[in-house]
Design a protein around this nucleic acid. Structure first.
Lengths: 339, 339
DNA sequence: TTGAAAGCGCTAACAA
DNA sequence: TTGTTAGCGCTTTCAA
């Protein structure tokens, strides 16, 4: 029994010990296969004593996918992204898939990394941040690898998407702020364009312009706390006093703005100025902030993304779907209470 | 050229088109292999026009590992963990590995997941949170799969570890607080034991007891902001007034404690009470907190972990190493300035 | 319900 | 420097 501790046992070893063929072993470990209960037990027993496990590489080489699902994400250390990846990873594992994490710095990286993903015969790819280059996506299509885009623009007309609708988001933010009595509105957005983030900022300012004539726009260098804080601080007290309601494109930016407004500019919130964010990250609830925001339901976002992925595995040629997830206003202390 | 868009091209196809053998193709794509430059070019060209990529599954099946490295982590949505995983993933990818993310809920899960990891012939495993069950680790050893533990207890005497030393951490926290004039010390720790987190809390209180006789201990149900906040709030103003220096085992807990002390209990920081945290997460720097803390250098933690992993790939039987990473005090506004 | 045999796509030892 | 050959461990027709 303990002759060669080095080599991992194979289905062949198990077959021999159980007194069956390799095919029988294979079937015993294949969920829907036809095996006599008795045989299966013999196999399992032998496998147990040998410490055998199916080699997913060999299985994947044989079948048409390895069970690995690529998760393409960047800025993993951002609260919202971290949560997304966590939920995604959990859900995938739950369903028997294995998430392979791909974080890219530059678009070039994305392209290359996408390639290696294909080399692992992935069962699918979920992209949550970087818009994958069109070429890479096209390649997935040829390889019949399902792709689901989360909060991304429509890169390819055949990839499924789950999004929080920018227009709906912008309008909701507008309604929250005006509903709380704000009438001179502004928006804080990152300079770098993004489907959902700058999308909702634009939708917001368009609505404002439509109703009130004009909307003050503040631009931060990126989506970070720091970027937002320094952008607002640099804008100065006067500019901020001109408005009485500010929509920040993400909670993280809102938190930076909040600190800039209160600490750097010395204004009072919500008395001088009301603020609404977007995402409902954990920190938005923290006592020192108590940020009013719009909740993006990440749980259902995850569930939907996975569902779309599985659906497409079954029906490769089905028309692409784009599903919007529910948005929910959350009133805390950066908006006034209206009765 | 466009006969069968379905099937992915194999090395065989490339070989034929380039007019060479399959081995030549294999060599062209193998970093250190001996191939004539001319041959390599022919191969690359053919590969390019065919859209060929090496099948990592087949390569892994043949060789002794798939290039996949398992990252075992839980609470991925915690700031510190998110950052760790991000850095780890980046570093791994940089080095040509592919991170497979494994997040477990229960210890049972860990065991099972570890198993499937082995099924993918992983090149190694890095565990950053859940202590992997001894059995699983043992299995890795038999399979000659390197394991690196980050901030974990010594589960197995052959696994390499990188840690931030609990004793050093506790002592440093003590020195910071007393150096700023605190003399009646307390500590906030989670009830659930953890090598590094409760470890440094204990080291701290032991040092305090040694020097001052006694140390007040506050216990939170977990390591979260919420848990810490409610624990401190529940302890009450009186208990907090009894001390003038509090060490919180993690920054996240410290932030919760801060809000409890200021918002729920109405005390002033650092006037009534000084607070020091641990980790130096991004939020510790945020304006509303400006938490004094101890910086754990995650970049070097990552680099070291990866180095240990690679070293062990080369020398499977080398003695296990445990490396401590540098700790650095960061003074902000929750401690008094001493001149 | 089971076993025999033929690959999946690649690498590596060997011989040329 | 290159090609030939023999597997890596598994699944899956096909016959029995």
């Amino acid at each position: 029994m303990t002759i060669e501790p080095k080599r991992k046992p194979t289905s062949f070893d198990v077959a021999r010990l159980a007194g069956v063929s390799r095919s029988a072993v294979s079937r015993a470990f294949t969920p829907g296969a036809v095996v006599a209960e008795q045989t299966r037990e013999k196999v399992f027993e032998a496998a147990e004593t040998l410490g055998y496990r199916v080699n997913s590489l060999a299985r994947g080489l044989q079948g048409d996918h390895s069970g690995i699902v690529g998760i393409l994400a960047s800025c993993l250390d951002t609260p919202i992204r971290a949560r997304q990846v966590k939920l995604l990873a959990q859900a995938l594992i739950q369903d028997g898939f294995r998430p392979m994490l791909v974080t890219a710095e530059t678009p070039d990286d994305v392209e290359g990394l996408f390639g290696t993903l294909l080399g692992y015969s992935v069962a699918g790819v979920i992209a949550t941040s970087d818009t994958p280059p069109r070429r890479a996506i096209e390649e997935c299509r040829r390889a019949a690898v399902p792709v689901v885009l989360i909060n991304r623009a429509e890169t390819a007309d055949w990839a499924d998407r789950v999004i929080s609708d920018p227009d709906e988001s912008g309008t909701l933010a507008f309604n929250m702020l005006t509903g709380c009595g704000a009438v001179r509105l502004g928006v804080l957005e990152p300079v770098i364009e993004t489907f959902s983030v700058t999308g909702r900022a634009r939708a917001f300012s368009q609505t404002v312009e439509q109703r009130f004539g004009s909307c003050t726009t503040f631009q931060a260098p990126d989506q970070s706390y720091k970027g937002a804080r320094s952008a607002i601080a640099a804008a100065g007290q006067k500019a901020l006093k001109d408005i009485d309601g500010l929509f920040c494109a993400t909670d993280l930016m809102a938190l930076g703005a909040l600190d800039a407004i209160r600490l750097d500019l010395g204004l009072k919130i919500p008395e001088d100025l009301q603020v609404v964010g977007f995402d409902n990250i954990e920190q938005a609830e923290w006592g020192s902030y108590a940020l009013s925001t719009i909740r993006q339901d990440l749980e259902s976002q995850t569930t939907l993304a996975l569902q779309l992925l599985k659906d497409r595995m079954k029906a490769h040629d089905a028309p692409a779907k784009t599903i919007g997830i529910a948005l929910q206003p959350v009133y805390r202390n950066t908006t006034r209470h209206v009765l």
